[in-house]
Amino acid sequence: MKESATPIGEPTILIDASPPTLAAYCREVFEFREVAWMLIRRDLIVRFRQTYFGLAWLLFKPLMLMAVMSFAFGFLAGFQKVHSAPYPLLIFCGVIPWYFFSNSVPDGMNSLLGHIHIIQKTYFPRAIFPLAAVAIDAIEFLVAWILFALGCIWFAYLPGWQIVFLPLFFLQLLALCAALGLLLAVVNLQFRDVGNLVPFLLTVGFFISPVGYTTERIPTEWQLLYALNPLVGIVEGLRWCLLNGMGGFPLMPVILSLSMTIVIGVTAIRHFLITEPKLVDLA
């Protein structure tokens, strides 16, 4: 399905059995960006509509997460006092990306199935649903870092020059969540099993990601396997950015994590483009 301009200025659509090209599809998604904005805006409003504290929840949630995790891992599990950085800040760098990941992946996954009644009736690029779902969680994720800044003031802690690389790790995490959201959204339409499997995998994922501890806790012989989890490189990278370089740049996890993100991303895009036109037949 390609689009091209005609002399009259009307859009011409060609409908056939071939899947769209990436460029054409991206152009189409861009054309329909307004729908994405509406979905995002609507969802944010719905999330906070009938709450007493409203938008304050955006900061409450990460604060509570940080408090609970610091208590559980630092106090109960005794992982504290390894680094010069304040332990709650170290935890924060793990908890907040994890929270984003573990929310946005299922949200993306369920977005097509949840809007199937719309998909069956009106055409517009369906990638907008998973992308908007991930974007909503991404907004929460980004806002949560205000709390990190407040934490730095509280602990009188100043991140070093490494912080300039922060956006790169944010982008990688966003790309990873978007790719998994897109991929699982179409797989979930075809095999509903995935909807049951993913929450379980996420529970496991929590323990095999450096959320409440640092990678140094993992035995050396397991580190390579451990770092195949793309979140390892991202979380350790974030800690390197924000906590004055921690124990040096986590080169191996970052490279592995980038490679995994690229593999997942390419797989997701390819599978999505092939499947997108057939979604209604598959569901």
């Binding site: 859009p11 011409t12 659509i13 409908i15 056939d16 998909i119 036109p277 209604v280 037949d281």
Partner: peptide, 16 residues
């Protein structure tokens, strides 16, 4: 309406 793809053939549509 592009809800489902054809198995064969094509359709050209001009306009919204």
């Amino acid at each position: 309406s592009r809800i489902i793809p054809p198995t064969e053939g094509r359709a050209m549509i001009r306009g919204r």
